[in-house]
């Protein structure tokens, strides 16, 4: 898993953060011009925990119902906003500008 410094080097990174299994924010870094607050990152962290749990349920159900593997274990979740997206996996997340976001690089950086 990359450090927060490494995650901030991703193209278009606005924030990088870590969280515990409950979704509480444990550490973060913000870009100099970021408008995000730690409280917002804490909420984003909770959305990762919730969505990865639901995606895991879906991956398990899908694989057992269809026999098609390849979704479990879930390796990350992304929430897409108008100008920004946030990519999370494990205990880390990063906020990226959509214009320059490289999601594959973000997922690779977030792989433990």
């Amino acid at each position: 898993m990359s450090s927060l410094d490494d995650l901030m080097k991703l193209e278009g990174a606005d924030a990088a953060f870590t969280f515990n299994p409950s979704g509480e924010l444990t550490a973060h870094q913000l870009a100099a011009d970021s408008k995000l607050q730690p409280e917002s990152l804490d909420l984003l962290a909770h959305t990762f925990v919730a969505n990865i749990a639901i995606a895991t349920l879906q991956a398990r159900g899908w694989e057992s119902a269809t026999g098609q593997g390849g979704f479990y274990p879930v390796k990350g979740f992304t929430l897409i906003g108008l100008e920004y997206s946030t990519v999370g996996n494990g205990s880390c997340g990063v906020v990226l500008h959509n214009e320059s976001a490289d999601f594959e690089a973000a997922y690779a950086a977030l792989t433990p």
């Binding site: 979704f71 390796k75 992304t78 906003g81």
Partner: peptide, 27 residues
Amino acid sequence: QADILCTNIDSKDCPFSESHGWMVRGP
């Protein structure tokens, strides 16, 4: 989730004022 997020952040600074989509990554 986006609604809740932006209810708790000053709306002009909220990066997810509306959810436009999502992705999930498997192996």
